[in-house]
Nucleic acid binder design. Sequence first.
DNA 1: TCTATTGTTCGACTACAAGCGTACAATGGT
DNA 2: ACCATTGTACGCTTGTAGTCGAACAATAGA
Lengths: 120, 120
Amino acid sequence: MKGISHPALDDISLENVCQALTDPVRIEIVGRLAKMSEATCSVLNAGRPKSSMSHHYRVLRDSGLICTRTRGTTHFNALRRAELDARFPGLLDALLKAMAVDADGEAKYEASPRSSTIPI
Amino acid sequence: MKGISHPALDDISLENVCQALTDPVRIEIVGRLAKMSEATCSVLNAGRPKSSMSHHYRVLRDSGLICTRTRGTTHFNALRRAELDARFPGLLDALLKAMAVDADGEAKYEASPRSSTIPI
DNA sequence: TCTATTGTTCGACTACAAGCGTACAATGGT
DNA sequence: ACCATTGTACGCTTGTAGTCGAACAATAGA
């Protein structure tokens, strides 16, 4: 594990933040981090290939959305809440709320076995 | 000019909204619409090729960020403020504020002749 | 109806991003 | 020192997005 670098506050751009949230996998990571405050990569990987996930962490780091603390060989990821809020006030909160809304909408189609469990 | 369709509220996804704001040209369009409430394509084109811009309007429309009213052969574009706020409360405002912040940051390097006009 | 204007659609090219296997690096434990 | 674990870096393939010229569609006006 070589250089894990994070952009400075002023180098965080809206364009990059949006770019980072373009992918459902990364949206999921951010959404989960919002509830866990800190999590290792392996916890978030959910069985997906390491190299793919490592790519997503990098995109999220480069965008300024998350920071990674290294402890031994394991990496702890967390949202850069306070910093992001300093740079773009209110944005992260609005994004997190939007993620919750969006997840609700999709849940209607995936879960909710009601229609099949109540035949007559 | 054929079918100009807009997604329903529930079909607007955070992923698509972010995707739409991935491009600086589209960020600029949204930022300008925030101040103008309505504008024709030709006004926003700023001399760029029509076909390229038409593509950007389509992405913005499909994402749910803007709607297009057709009047004769000219198209009037506007932000879907109220609807977006109903779907993702606070998100659009936060995004618009973020655009302003981001634009400021870049302006420091492009405009602002102060450092060169106040030598001593 | 003929023409100018306003945008969209199509097609081709280019650039970038995702996915993933493999190799590598860094650390902890024995 | 050796090995297992954790994650990154590299290289490749594939898919998708941006760019733009050229052709087309729709409308207003003469």
